[in-house]
Structures are given as C-alpha cells and as structure tokens.
Computed example of a mutant assay.
Amino acid sequence: MRILPCLLLVLAAFVATARAEPSVSLEGPTAGWRYNGLNERDGEARVAYPTPPIDRGAQRGRSLIEGRLKDLADARQPYRLVVNGNPLPLYTDAEGRFVRPYNFGAGSNSVALSVDGKTVKRVQFYEANQSKTPARLRIALGWDDPKAELDLHVITPDGQHAFWAHPVLSNGGGLDVDSVDGPGPEMFTLAAPPHGTYLVYVNYWGNLGPQGYNFQAGSNQNDLITAQINLVFNENTVNEKRETFVVPLRAIGDLLLVKSFNH
C-alpha cells in the first residue's frame, strides 16, 4: 500500500525537474538572420548587456544575436554561446536576456546555446548576402569574467598591429566591435590574409565595476580568468581548420603571447 505514495513522490520530483528545464527564445528567422548591424534607424547604438559595444572595427554588416533564457533558477552563469563552432562565455541580465554581436559571412552559419554543458537551442541558417566576404582568417576571444576587460592584439606579417586603439589595418583586416561589457567576443577578421608570420596576444587591461573602468586588483569576479581564443581558417568552407587555446590571466597588465603562426 506504500507503493502509491512513493510513486507520487517520484512523479512530483519528475515534474519539478521538468519545470526546471531551461527554455530559449532566439530572435531571427531560420532562413536567414536579421540583417541590422549595430545601429537602429535613429542612429542609436543597440544595447548589449550590460553596456553597448564600442564600434571601433573595420568590419561592417554585423548581426546581433538576441534572445532570452528562461527557467534558469538552478543554472550557473556563464552559459555557452557557440557561433559557427566558436564557443564563447555568455552572461545575461537578471531576466535572462542577452545580445551579442557577430559578423556572419556568406553561406551556412550556426548558433547554439548550452546551459550546464547541455545544448538547449540550435539554429542553422544560410546567409544569402553574397556581398559579405567570407572570413579566411578569424580570431575570436572570449573570457569568463564579466567584471574584467580583456583585449585582443594581432600583429600581421607586414608589421601592422591591430588592437582597440588601432582597429583598422590597411591590409583589409581589422578588429570587430570592441566588447566592453566583460566576456566578449572580440574578433579579428581578414578576408585575404597576407603570407607570413602572425602574432596573437591577449592583454588583461583592467576591470569594470558600477562606477566604470578601474585598475584595482580584486575588483573583478574571479581570481583566475580563463580566456579562450579560437583561431579559424576558411570559416564555413570545406577547407575550414581551427585551433583553440585556453590561457589563464591573473593580474591586470598581463600580456600573453597566445600563438605565433605562419600562413
């Protein structure tokens, strides 16, 4: 006779677990992402949580990946946003909303979100705007501390140095939006990479608090910041190749050489 109460307890636990499953709303049609760049018609910058990105980059025609994660009471941030195979930490506001910029190339693209290691949403779409040049070289940086500001530095074979204060290079390359709200992404893109040696650095520039930027040790969230750098050649083609590097940063001012490579 005790079987029924036990079954009811198991059922109640199952229902509670089912209710806790996260759900995702992801804006944008499945046949093609909404093309909007970073500005609305009124010229105001779109707001990415918690602050808008600074548009210092050379790349144009960006799209905003917008959405909301719901029923996340027991889930821990950062979540994971995977764009064309590039995993990036994702933080949301108190209501689960997020906005992240990305410069999609022509052809097939994908966006996936995962919570606690489980994929909860995936969208595959085709960008038919052939005027958008594919990225032959893409370097994407993300990190796991929303209160820290990291910067990507890339030196190209002709001696040019791309970073936040000099984002546009004469060889056609450049940094995409300078994400100033913590976990990135920051991206360097080249459509026609010159041959030679490239150097990729990551700099722990400072911290971000309620009063703005600061250089106070300990005002970030994590004692050890984990930065992930994705190096991608020929993105979204049959010849795509990629490497991923994970590096630790501990102190403001750290400047690490992540990768030196010939192309």
Score class of each variant (00 low, 15 high):
1 M>V: 09
2 R>Y: 13
3 I>P: 03
8 L>R: 07
10 V>H: 07
11 L>C: 12
12 A>Y: 09
13 A>D: 07
15 V>Y: 11
16 A>N: 10
24 V>N: 01
25 S>T: 15
32 G>S: 07
32 G>I: 05
35 Y>F: 13
39 N>P: 12
43 G>F: 04
48 A>I: 14
48 A>H: 13
49 Y>C: 09
52 P>W: 03
53 P>A: 08
55 D>F: 03
56 R>N: 14
56 R>H: 11
57 G>N: 01
57 G>T: 02
59 Q>W: 04
59 Q>K: 07
60 R>L: 08
65 I>S: 01
66 E>G: 09
70 K>H: 15
72 L>T: 07
73 A>E: 14
79 Y>D: 01
80 R>E: 15
82 V>C: 12
86 N>P: 11
87 P>C: 06
88 L>S: 04
88 L>M: 12
93 D>I: 06
98 F>S: 03
101 P>H: 01
101 P>L: 01
102 Y>I: 07
104 F>G: 01
106 A>I: 08
107 G>E: 00
109 N>R: 06
117 G>K: 04
118 K>Y: 07
119 T>R: 10
123 V>G: 10
124 Q>W: 13
126 Y>F: 14
131 S>E: 15
132 K>F: 06
132 K>E: 07
137 L>T: 00
146 P>L: 04
149 E>T: 10
150 L>M: 06
153 H>Y: 09
154 V>K: 02
154 V>D: 02
155 I>V: 09
160 Q>S: 03
163 F>W: 05
166 H>K: 12
168 V>I: 02
172 G>H: 02
173 G>R: 02
176 D>F: 04
177 V>C: 08
178 D>I: 07
184 G>T: 04
184 G>F: 03
185 P>S: 03
189 T>D: 05
190 L>C: 00
195 H>F: 08
204 Y>Q: 04
207 N>R: 05
213 Y>A: 12
216 Q>R: 15
223 D>E: 15
224 L>V: 15
225 I>S: 00
225 I>K: 04
226 T>F: 10
230 N>D: 12
232 V>R: 00
233 F>S: 06
233 F>H: 07
233 F>L: 09
235 E>V: 04
236 N>T: 08
236 N>M: 07
240 E>H: 06
244 T>W: 08
246 V>S: 10
246 V>E: 09
247 V>M: 05
254 D>P: 02
255 L>F: 11
255 L>N: 11
256 L>R: 05
256 L>N: 04
257 L>H: 06
